[in-house]
């Protein structure tokens, strides 16, 4: 019996141990390596940086680490403006997403109950089709001779094609389009939970609908607004594909910078330093997001 319970305990402990170990090896360790490499110097070699581990010389290991890469980042205007521009683009996109997403989520939550699962499925469906393809689709629409300009000129709304592709506007359109489900779903979840009688009670107590929207609906949707905004803001800051395909050469974004440091300049330590910088920018929103989600799960269970 004792033996059986021992094997049972071992089997049982495998359940957390396996994924734990996997994430430790393939997530935590790689991350520490990035940190280490961001602190070492580039070398013309394969791989193009000074060795990561040299156990024979611990003191030397630490003495080799320096903040040269970060000094480069701080010293170079390019990185500063890429960082600021990433944050600006992500912020504007998030605001646009809220403006577009809220009416949609609100209408979904007000729809007859039997239609709601279908509407949710329709919001999720595009997310399942390739991100790359969905961004690619916009090239054909936004080009100077593209479908949008063709349509607008046919309607007589414009006489000359609008230049949208390869501008920041195309990036906003791309981000709003690609991330809309991430904004709509948390908003919908919050709005759907809202008790209709609360709005009736507000009406009954003398508050007209437009005022109740700000005093009742928005405060109660706040968890959804925060979750949706962070869920869009965080990946938008690090976005690479959208600025690369839709933005112009002057659209600076930090994810794009990391990519070109890595693939074009082959400066791996600098690329790692950019990654760390990106992460530092995102730590605060990520922690807030985790906090909001944890609280949501707590209240639900």
């Amino acid at each position: 019996m004792a033996e059986r319970s021992l094997t049972r305990k071992l089997t049982a402990s495998l359940v957390p141990a396996l994924p734990y170990l996997w994430l430790g090896v393939f997530f935590l360790v790689p991350f520490l390596i990035v940190l280490k490499i961001s602190l070492s110097d580039p070398a013309v070699a394969q791989p193009p940086y000074k060795p990561v581990f040299d156990w024979s010389d611990i003191a030397g290991f630490f003495s080799q680490l320096d903040l040269d890469n970060f000094e480069t980042l701080v010293g170079d205007d390019l990185y500063l403006s890429a960082t600021l521009s990433s944050i600006r683009i992500a912020t504007i996109s998030t605001i646009l997403l809220l403006l577009v997403g809220f009416p949609v989520a609100y209408a979904m939550a007000r729809a007859p109950e039997r239609h709601r699962p279908l509407l949710v499925a329709l919001v999720i469906l595009p997310f399942w089709t390739s991100f790359l393809i969905r961004i690619y689709a916009w090239i054909a629409i936004l080009k100077p001779e593209g479908l949008l300009n063709q349509g607008l000129m046919a309607l007589g709304a414009i006489s000359e094609p609008l230049t949208i592709l390869n501008t920041e506007w195309a990036v906003y359109i791309g981000i709003v389009y690609a991330y809309l489900p991430f904004m709509v779903l948390p908003l919908y979840a919050a709005l759907e939970k809202m008790d209709d009688t609360l709005l009736e009670a507000a009406l009954d107590l003398g508050s007209p609908p437009w005022r109740s929207f700000w005093t009742i609906t928005v405060p109660l949707a706040m968890p959804g607004i925060i979750a949706g905004s962070l869920l869009c803001f965080i990946p938008a800051v690090g976005e690479f594909v959208i600025p690369d395909l839709l933005g112009g050469s002057e659209t600076l974004m930090i994810g794009r910078q990391l990519w070109s440091e890595f693939f074009s300049n082959r400066d791996w330590p600098l690329a790692s330093a950019v990654a760390i910088l990106l992460l530092i920018i995102l730590v605060v929103p990520i922690v807030i997001y985790r906090d909001v989600e944890a609280r949501r799960l707590e209240t639900e269970s």
């Binding site: 008790d195 009688t197 609360l198 009736e200 009670a201 507000a202 009406l203 009954d204 107590l205 003398g206 508050s207 007209p208 009742i216 109660l220």
Partner: peptide, 18 residues
């Protein structure tokens, strides 16, 4: 409209603003 009526209601679910 409800918000202009001199009538108030106590809701079955109470509908207190959380």
């Amino acid at each position: 409209p409800p918000y202009r009526r001199p009538v108030n209601m106590m809701f079955q679910s109470y509908a207190l603003f959380p």
